[in-house]
Write a protein that binds this DNA or RNA. Structure first.
Length: 279
DNA sequence: AACTACGGCAACCGCTCTGTA
DNA sequence: TTACAGAGCGGTTGCCGTAGT
């Protein structure tokens, strides 16, 4: 059973608002206040849907709206920080930015901030460093990442991760590292499940539960990006499912970052603050 | 000067949530 | 408890201005 339309759309105007329409709506709301949006267009003499009136008022005509460009130092930084916590909850973000609408923030994010973040190597969805696998040495040098531990963990997730292991190893320039990684990987494959679990515990991680494992497999079955687990310790005991990160098709890896600061327990040396944001 | 491509933004669409009878 | 209407929200579309050729 489909929903009935919010209003009878026959004969109702769509598209850009005229000055006259703006004036009618503004005058009506100034006198009566923003009450029932369904009745407002009729009472104000507008050939518009109530929904359209509400949108026009909240996004454009409201007197407390601050127009003009976002300030980099204040508003932009606040938006980025809030987005890293709230995600695409534009209304929640807008509630913390007086004078800005959710629509305005959403548009600004999509047209400006998202591109800037991506350009600066930051995944705009997770706010995590967005790294190119073709330069894996960057990962190692940057993070002093203990890949041998990563490998032992990855094998718990999905046998197909072995393919990834080979790819990772082959991309290393240092032959000694390659051998170390592959040897470690082989040793791990020969371990019992209990031993593998112990590996996880020693790295302060929970072993993969059935849920993320299923998720990883399900994704793979559809030839979607692989999933793998990162050696990330979340202070808020984030469930392992939240640590699962898509291994995207564009040959890049995104490290999860569900909080402004996170550390990898495996190396003890890796510590990210919120990634830098440069113009 | 004319055409094309692109970016920004206002507005719409459809779904979800919430209150009420 | 259920059905429905109204409101809110996030994603998407399409128009318009501008830069590039």
């Amino acid at each position: 059973m489909g929903r009935s339309p919010c209003c009878d759309k026959t004969g109702l105007k769509k598209g850009p608002w005229t000055q006259e329409e703006d004036l009618k709506l503004t005058k009506y709301i100034q006198i009566h206040g923003p009450g029932s949006w369904r009745t407002i267009p009729k009472n104000a003499g507008l050939q518009r849907c109530g929904k359209s009136c509400r949108l026009r008022w909240t996004n454009y005509l409201r007197p407390d709206i601050k127009r003009g460009r976002f300030s980099f130092e204040e508003e932009e930084e606040i938006i980025i920080q809030l987005h890293s916590v709230l995600g695409n909850k534009w209304s929640a973000i807008a509630a913390r930015l007086p004078g800005r609408t959710d629509n305005e923030i959403k548009n600004y994010w999509n047209t400006n901030i998202r591109k800037k973040l991506f350009h600066n190597g930051i995944d705009p969805v997770t706010h995590a460093p967005h790294l190119d696998l073709s330069d894996l040495s960057t990962i190692l040098n940057l993070a002093q990442f203990n890949l041998s531990n990563l490998l032992s963990l990855q094998t718990l997730v999905n046998p197909d991760v072995s393919k990834l292991v080979t790819l990772l190893a082959s991309s290393l320039s240092n032959q000694e590292n390659q051998e170390m990684l592959l040897n470690n990987h082989i040793n791990t494959m020969n371990q019992s499940p209990n031993q593998q679990t112990q590996n996880c515990n020693s790295m302060h991680l929970s072993p993969p539960s059935s849920q993320p494992l299923d998720k990883a497999n399900a994704v793979h079955e559809n030839d979607e990006p692989y999933f793998f687990y990162h050696l990330v310790n979340f202070s808020d005991q984030t469930s392992l499912e939240n640590v699962v990160t898509p291994f995207s098709n564009d040959n890049s890896v995104t490290l999860p970052n569900h909080s402004p600061q996170f550390t990898t327990q495996a190396s003890e040396n890796l510590s990210f603050s919120r990634p830098g944001f440069e113009v």
